[in-house]
Design a protein around this nucleic acid. Sequence first.
DNA 1: CGGTCTCTTGAGTTAAATCAAAGGCGGTGG
DNA 2: CCACCGCCTTTGATTTAACTCAAGAGACCG
Lengths: 247, 247
Amino acid sequence: MFLTSYNRERSTTNLLSQVEPETLSGLFSRQPVECLQPGQSLFLEGDDAKHVFEVAEGALRIFRIISDGRRVITGFVFEGDLLGVSLKGNYLYSAEAIVGTKIRRLARRTFEAAVQESEELRPQLFARVCDEMAAAQDQMVLLSCKSAEERLCTFLLKHLRRAAAKTGVQSMVQLPMTRQDMADYLGLTIETVSRTITKLTTKGVLGCVGRHSVKIIKPMTLAQLAGDNDEYGWGEPMVSADERRHH
Amino acid sequence: MFLTSYNRERSTTNLLSQVEPETLSGLFSRQPVECLQPGQSLFLEGDDAKHVFEVAEGALRIFRIISDGRRVITGFVFEGDLLGVSLKGNYLYSAEAIVGTKIRRLARRTFEAAVQESEELRPQLFARVCDEMAAAQDQMVLLSCKSAEERLCTFLLKHLRRAAAKTGVQSMVQLPMTRQDMADYLGLTIETVSRTITKLTTKGVLGCVGRHSVKIIKPMTLAQLAGDNDEYGWGEPMVSADERRHH
DNA sequence: CGGTCTCTTGAGTTAAATCAAAGGCGGTGG
DNA sequence: CCACCGCCTTTGATTTAACTCAAGAGACCG
């Protein structure tokens, strides 16, 4: 808002940015859109982290391939998410489009300079990084000690919330990723994912329509089965002393 | 080195900071040391995140208690580490001293203001956050698909590196936490941790001396068993196509 | 409409969890 | 200094949730 950013011809647009405050997305809005085909990779683990990306449309999976050839998906990114922010020299993971996806990119240097110079942008970025950190923690909890059913329910609930935030109150959830993707994300096998979804369907919690979308019929039940108690207890007053063990 | 009130005059004092560069630790150095007894908690999940801490000595566990009463340890912090940086309003986890521990604290506002105003400090903090993120990713990989033995070896290796960095090349590793702590961190039960350590000892990879320290006898074997291949392949040319399954 | 790829379902196996009990370390007090 | 006590850890036996292997069903494409 001041200092170097002022030097360029930004002063004319600054008027605008006071009316319509500067946003991280705004940084990307002038960049050309690039299209990715399903399965196309955006960058690979270990690549020089030259760019920061914003997802304009679609979805990507973020993953690492470990030494024995298995794949671990550490996250999914969707419309509006940033990609490649919290790292130093090289990407720590690969990113691959799940479906047809549109992205915009900014040179890391440009991005970082812009953020450094803006009093408005810095806290926005900080908030995003915090969210990313919180998501990582939640995932650790999930992987540490949740059962297959709890994992699936947590996953579905997260996507339900995302869908609700985007498209209003709605019980249909689009899941663009494959069952194998879910398995690699949830630390399960594809068979276990499939069986668990079947079980939830049988229980009447879900209704599957096609491979990539589900209808959440009993969101409350789903939340209970997820075992989070909606971010800290609402049900029973917590199991007496300290003992219930794994799963 | 400087107090925050100092920062306003920073442009003039830059000469000084070139001689002895500003560091994050430096921010805390004027703060009084506080001592924590073993088991004493520093803050609880959900508390207002009013302070940022630096560990001057000792060790803490960072954990969450989930709805069924189980505990998930998401990390350990040691001398020189910061605590409570990457979050917004409230702490996302509890922190508890494992052994007698000394810490210094800074009001979050003071800390953030100091960092925001310093060209030197900002990248330092960014780097720390990136490391934290990378550690979280590694932990997700570990929890997603490593076997008990791989988990233990990864854990020991991490501590071996820490010890080597601190105290020169050394094969003794201090593990102040209990077996239960390790179990809660690695997503295992105490019995499995114990059995796995016994197995590694039997194999001659480790020598246990007392409960809280081990001697790493075959670090190379340990690294192989950890299954990381020291951050990307050095051994076999990676299992042909894509298939080896869980554990 | 056939082919391919993904997903589902079934049967059997296994690594880690659970349940149970004994062993050892460290601290306390006699 | 030694004996005792409590807690942490180890070890053993059994169970189980999820994995593996295998085959069949269903979705989506040209």
